[in-house]
C-alpha cells in the first residue's frame, strides 16, 4: 500500500459518501445519473465476485472495503430507482447503457490476462468502470448544469482513479509491478474527466456553479 493508493481509495469512499449524503439529505436524485450508479454497482459485483465464492473471513480491511463498495452502490441504486424514484431525471439520463456494457464485455473476452471466468469478469469490470461515468457526464451536458454537491462527487470520483495512476507509476518504479489492463483503462477513465476537472477547478473552486453553454 502506498500513499497514492490510500488517498485514491479514500477519495473513492468520499465520492460514494458525498453522493449518498446528497440524495439522502435533499431527498432527491435530481442531476444524478441512475445508469452510471447501476454500472458502478455492476463493476463492484463483477470485480469482487470472489467475496461470494470463497468464504470471506472479514479480518482484513480489503474485504471490508469491498463489502462497503458493493453495499453502498446497491443502496444508492435503491435510493435512485425506488425510494426517491419520483425525483429521478429519467428523460435526461438517456445515454444507452448497452452501448457501454456490450463493448466492455466483448473486449474483456478478447483482451484479458487469462481466459477464465473470474478473470474475464474482473477485466469486464475494469473496462466498464472506465466508461461508467459517461451517462452522468452526458446527463450534465443535457441539463446544462451540475449542482455544486454533484460536482464535488464527480471531482472525488475522478480523483480516485487519477491517484491510482500515480500509484501505478509508484509501483512500477519501486515494485516493478505492472497491471497493463488496469493502467490503460484507468488512463482512459481519467481522461474522460479532464473536461470536467477544468470546469471544476476554474468554477466550483471559486464558488461558482458549473453551467455548460446550453
Amino acid at each position: 500500500m502506498n500513499i497514492f493508493r490510500l488517498f485514491g481509495d479514500l477519495s473513492h469512499l468520499a465520492a460514494i459518501a458525498i453522493l449518498l449524503l446528497k440524495i439522502w439529505k435533499t431527498r432527491s436524485c435530481a442531476g444524478v445519473s441512475g445508469k452510471t450508479q447501476l454500472l458502478f454497482a455492476v463493476c463492484f459485483i463483477t470485480r469482487y465476485i470472489d467475496l461470494f465464492l470463497h468464504f470471506v473471513s472479514l479480518y482484513n480491511t480489503e474485504k471490508v472495503m469491498k463489502l462497503i463498495y458493493i453495499s453502498a452502490s446497491v443502496f444508492t441504486c435503491y435510493l435512485i430507482f425506488f425510494k426517491f424514484k419520483a425525483t429521478y431525471d429519467g428523460n435526461h439520463d438517456s445515454m444507452r447503457a448497452e452501448f457501454l456494457i456490450v463493448p466492455a464485455a466483448g473486449l474483456a473476452c478478447l483482451i484479458n490476462t487469462k481466459f477464465d471466468a473470474i478473470e474475464i469478469l474482473w477485466t469486464f469490470s475494469i473496462y466498464l468502470e472506465a466508461v461508467a461515468i459517461l451517462p452522468q457526464l452526458f446527463l450534465i451536458s443535457k441539463t446544462g448544469e451540475a449542482e455544486t454537491i454533484t460536482s464535488h462527487y464527480l471531482f472525488a470520483q475522478g480523483s480516485y482513479r487519477a491517484l491510482y495512476i500515480l500509484n501505478w507509476i509508484y509501483r512500477y518504479h519501486y515494485e516493478s509491478h505492472v497491471d497493463t489492463i488496469a493502467i490503460v483503462a484507468g488512463v482512459v477513465q481519467t481522461i474522460l474527466y479532464c473536461d470536467f476537472f477544468y470546469l471544476y477547478i476554474t468554477k466550483v473552486v471559486k464558488g461558482q456553479k458549473i453551467v455548460l453553454p446550453a
Binding site: R5, D9, H12, E62, M65, K66, Y69, T113, K114, D116, I118, E119, W122, Y164, N167, D179, A182
Partner: peptide, 10 residues
Amino acid sequence: PADEVDHDEL
C-alpha cells in the same frame, strides 16, 4: 487457487 491472476488492488 494458485492459478488465478492476482489483482491485489480494489
